[in-house]
Computed example of a mutant assay.
Amino acid sequence: MSAEVAAYIAALPPDQREALADLRARLKALLPDHIEVMSYAMPGFRQPDPKGRMVAGYAAFAKHLGLYPHSGSVIPQIECAPFKASKSGVLFTPDRPLPDALLRAIIETRQAEIAAGYGRKG
């Protein structure tokens, strides 16, 4: 874990700290070769190549946690109910984490989008 990510998670209240540490471990298992970074003031995972794209980020807020695939077109493609979602992310709480199947669907959809060249300039 990067020092910045460790500091971000360590500064959270215990329930959020535990929930995001668990999410981080689950993301790491889905993205074992990816680089853990801070991006847009949130922890996340970037592709391992020098021009690697962000695959997903996560963050804690006062009343919820969020997972953000760094794309406005991923979440609308996935059924996220009963979780609250916007085009940029899906919200959850420490006592109701994202199920593995939903997490996997978000990551796989984002990876497919990146592989297809979505959002590349030039």
Rank of each mutant, 00 (worst) to 15 (best):
Q77G: 12
G72V: 10
F83D: 02
M38W: 11
S39H: 05
V37T: 08
Y40M: 09
S39L: 06
Y40D: 08
I75P: 01
P43D: 07
A85N: 11
S71F: 04
C80I: 11
S73P: 13
F45N: 01
G52S: 13
M42N: 02
P69V: 03
E79M: 14
P69D: 04
G72M: 10
V37Y: 04
H70T: 03
P48A: 14
P48Q: 11
S86I: 11
P82W: 08
E36G: 06
P43Y: 08
I75Q: 00
S86W: 09
Q47Y: 15
A81T: 10
A41T: 09
A41D: 12
G44K: 01
P82S: 06
P82Q: 06
P76W: 10
C80L: 15
M54Y: 02
Y40W: 15
I75N: 01
A59S: 13
G52K: 12
K51A: 12
A56I: 04
C80Y: 09
I75H: 00
K87A: 14
A81Q: 12
P50A: 10
H34L: 07
A85I: 07
V74T: 03
L65W: 02
E36V: 06
S39Y: 05
H64R: 09
G57H: 02
A41V: 07
A56K: 00
V55N: 00
Q77W: 14
A60V: 06
P50Q: 14
K51P: 14
G44E: 00
H64T: 06
P76T: 08
R53S: 09
A62Y: 11
F61Y: 07
A41C: 12
K51W: 13
Y58V: 04
G44I: 02
A56M: 07
R53L: 12
F45E: 00
H64D: 05
Y68P: 00
R46G: 08
Y68Q: 04
K84F: 14
M54H: 04
M42A: 07
R53V: 13
P43S: 13
P43F: 05
Q47S: 13
E36W: 03
G52C: 14
M38K: 12
A59R: 01
S73I: 13
Y58L: 04
P76L: 13
P50R: 13
G44P: 02
E36Q: 07
E36L: 06
H70E: 07
A41F: 14
A59W: 00
C80N: 10
R46A: 07
V55C: 05
M54C: 06
Y68S: 01
S39Q: 08
V74A: 03
D49N: 11
S86M: 13
Y68T: 04
A81R: 12
P50K: 13
L67K: 01
K87H: 11
Q47K: 14
H64A: 07
G57W: 00
L65H: 02
I75R: 01
P43N: 11
K51R: 14
Q47T: 13
V55A: 02
E36N: 09
A59F: 01
P43C: 15
P82F: 06
I35C: 09
G57T: 03
V74Q: 01
I35M: 08
V55H: 01
Y68A: 02
F61G: 09
P43G: 07
A60N: 05
G72I: 14
M54T: 03
P69K: 03
S71G: 10
H64I: 07
V74N: 01
H64K: 09
Q47D: 11
G57Q: 03
K63A: 15
G44Y: 01
G72Q: 11
A59K: 01
M54S: 03
G52I: 07
